[in-house]
Structures are given as C-alpha cells and as structure tokens.
Amino acid sequence: MTDLVHADHVTLRYGASEIFSDVSFTIEPHSFTSIVGPNGAGKTQLMRVIIGLVTPSAGVLLRNFTMHQIGYVPQRLYVHPALPVTVREFIQLYITPRGLWRSVALPTFDPKFSIDHLMNKPLGKLSGGQLQRVILATVLSTQPQILFLDEFSSGIDPQGQAELFGYLHRLHEQAGLTIIMISHDLDITSQYADQVLCLNKNLICHGRPRYVFTAENLEKMYGIPLTKLERHHHHD
C-alpha cells in the first residue's frame, strides 16, 4: 500500500531556533495516528509540515493527498466574543469560501454533535466545548478523507469527549477516515490510535501505543518518571 505520508529525516528551523529535527516516519491510509509529547515539543509545527502549511528546512516529506481531501481543526480559532457571525454563517463560509454571500443548504449533523439548536447563535457566544463541536462538525461536513486534529478535545467535558471520539472512531473504522491528531491524553491515544509518534524535538519513539508507551520512553519524552503512565503499558 502506498504511504499517505512519508517523512524522511525532516527538520524544521525558524531562524536560529530548531523546532524539531531528523524526524522520520510513515503514515498509512485509513490509519489513526496520535502525536504526543510535552509542550514545546514541536507537535503543532510537525502537523503543519505534514499538511503542507510549512516547508521543512531539511529532509524530505512526501504526501499522497491534496488540500481538498483534508479537514483541519487547529488548536484554536480567533473568535472575538462580540463577533456577530452565526454558526450557520460560519458553516456556510467554510463549505463555500468563494463567491457571493448566499444561503447554502446545510448538511444534516449527527446528533452526537448536538449543535442543531446553536445554528442562529453568534460564534462568539458559544462556550469552549460548543465551539469545538461546531468546528469539528463543520470540518467533517465536507467529508474529508484525512482529518487533522490539534488538541481538539481540550474544552469538552469527559462524557462529551468519549462520545465524540467514539463517533470519530466509527468514522475511522467504517468509512476509512484517516485521523492524525495531536493529544496530551495518553488514555485516548492508547484507546483509539493505532500508531503513536512521540515527539520531543526528535522522534523519541513510534509504533503501536502498547509497544511504545514504556516507562523508559515516557521518561525520555517528558523528562520525568511518569509512574501513572506505566498503567497504559500494562493495560494494553
């Protein structure tokens, strides 16, 4: 099978500062990859390189997809609290970002998102969790084949998280959606991801969560012994 992404000794620098270096991995189509690592490890920038938003400073990154095939939920969107753009308008903007303003019929959204009652609400008036749901539903509405999520679930309560990841997992299993996410949540990563990339400036380890989430690797990645995390290893 042709790789979806093939990274070969990829390095990214901004001026004198090195964001990450010598990173090599592959991502297969229809896989579920989770990028984990401490703050400042270069995860978001690695995702931007994979998407094609930034060109690596060294190394080769081959991608076997086009911009039209992807959906991207960035870590945060700048939404001013007084911004009078409704959820409906936001979704319409996203679906048809070109041409004149006119009403576009909206797709139906899975009840799991519970956003139907929010359609006429201004974006700036949504709670963090509601905004996250709206953004995910919007991004999925164009039926991407590859979904990029950058710390997506941070504003959502645990029950909502479980529901949405369950939903994403079904899309992954049944519709073959490829998911590449950045997460601080090693529980969710262990539960859903079939490949994990552990990043801390360099690629510390990669592979199936059950094999790579060892005490030794986690200590190397986070710089401190993480006894709690050993559980994941034993659970898997």
Binding site: R48, I51, L53, M67, H68, I70, G71, Y72, P74, R76, L77, Y78, V79, V85, L93, Y94, T96, P97, R98, G99, L100, W101
Partner: peptide
C-alpha cells in the same frame, strides 16, 4: 468586498484553517 468578503471573514479565524479551504 462582495467577491472576497467570505474569504476575508474566514481568514480572520486562522490563516491555517482558511488556507486548507483554498484561501
């Protein structure tokens, strides 16, 4: 403004987010 208005609004949210949509 009529021709680019939607792109102008979308790009205020995040340039990466809008870039993926061809903006």
């Amino acid at each position: 403004l009529l021709a680019t208005g939607k792109r102008l609004v979308l790009s205020t949210f995040s340039s990466d987010f809008s870039y993926v949509r061809g903006v």
